[in-house]
């Protein structure tokens, strides 16, 4: 690590000082790095120097994990290592791999693994802020978080963290990765000038929206509400959810939200949307995840949010709705019944 130029680029994200030898425009630039327990170093390193590990049962051919060490082998891109909650090492697969290719996985999988090592609650979510309060959109990759986030951004919401979001013990959402990735179809339907936008990676029809095109918040913000995204074409097999659905639920053009009243169900939803649950298991942090998620559902309401499938329609119906107030999104009957159920 000593030969590296890791001090070249300084960033701040998730409450950490990040020194990197590779540019990470997805993170907020920091002027001065301060060495200390909150400093994270990202630097090239030969994987031959990485000590052998006796990987846990939750490892896979691509992922090798023990409690304080995480390795990813991504053929065609490179090798990544996060260890001791402080260091991320990387090695390029070959010279054809660009920095842009590497950083895509550095700021997602590798940084996410490091955050889990540090004991953070990391969720698959995008957080936005309005009037000093944060909302969290939870959903698996490709569930439409970024598209919805962009629509909300157009209504004055500011981005706090995208893709992976960290919530601390006080229920504060920490500023994280500040970039929205939109697919070609979404960019087209949102009438964005996609030809002017940088590609997420050269091989993809996915575009990155970054500041200054994106208004962002750089301070931790209190989490006010969590929405689990439901795309309409997805049929849901969850009994409780079916039971929860009331009048208006089947209108494909509507936007509706239902509070998940049972804390156990809310807890499961959070656990299922943990960032890479296998990382938690492989690094022996599953119990930590449960405890943190349980504490969070006691503090913050979790709602399921059903959205129309089409991007244009989503944009249109959002115009008259306020996600700050989930009760206003409840279907009529449910709205009347919710207080009694509580």
């Amino acid at each position: 690590m000593s030969e590296s130029n890791y001090h070249k680029n300084l960033y701040t994200a998730f409450g950490l000082q990040i020194s990197s030898d590779i540019q990470l425009p997805e993170l907020r630039t920091e002027v001065k790095a301060e060495a200390g327990p909150d400093q994270v170093i990202i630097a090239a390193s030969s994987r031959k120097d990485w000590p052998a590990i006796n990987a846990s049962d939750h490892s896979t051919p691509s992922l090798q994990m023990i409690p304080a060490d995480w390795r990813l082998e991504l053929e065609g891109i490179g090798w990544f290592r996060a260890h001791e909650g402080r260091f991320i090492s990387w090695q390029r697969w070959d010279d054809s791999v660009s920095d842009r290719d590497l950083r895509t996985f550095l700021v997602s999988s590798a940084l996410g693994a490091l955050l889990i090592q540090r004991g953070f609650l990391v969720l698959n979510g995008t957080a936005l802020v309005k009037d000093g309060k944060a909302l969290l959109l939870l959903g698996s990759p490709a569930s439409g978080k970024s598209t919805l986030a962009w629509c909300l951004h157009q209504q004055g919401w500011q981005l706090l963290s995208s893709e992976l979001t960290v919530i601390d013990e006080q229920g504060m959402v920490l500023p994280g990765m500040q970039q929205l990735k939109l697919w070609y179809d979404a960019a087209e339907e949102l009438m964005l000038d996609w030809q002017q936008l940088p590609l997420v990676r050269k091989a993809l029809k996915r575009y990155a929206i970054l500041p200054p095109d994106l208004s962002v918040v750089s301070e931790p913000m209190p989490l006010a509400v969590i929405y689990g995204l439901n795309r309409r074409e997805q049929k849901d097999k969850n009994k409780e959810e079916v039971k929860d659905k009331e009048e208006g639920a089947d209108d494909p053009d509507a936007i509706c939200a239902w509070q998940v009243i049972r804390q156990q169900v809310a807890l499961l939803q959070l656990r299922n949307q943990a960032f890479q649950p296998r990382f938690y298991r492989g690094m022996g942090k599953e119990q930590q995840l449960f405890i943190q998620a349980a504490a969070l559902v006691k503090r913050v309401e979790v709602h399921r949010l059903a959205l129309p499938d089409g991007v244009k329609l989503m944009k249109k119906v959002l115009k008259d709705k306020s996600l700050e107030d989930p009760v206003s999104l409840a279907p009529k009957q449910s709205q009347a019944e919710s207080p009694e159920e509580e």
């Binding site: 691509s62 991504l74 997602s108 999988s109 698996s140 997420v200 993809l204 890479q276 990382f279």
Partner: peptide, 11 residues
Amino acid sequence: DDQLGINTCDL
């Protein structure tokens, strides 16, 4: 995503 440890939308 679970098996490979990445967001496969990035490939």
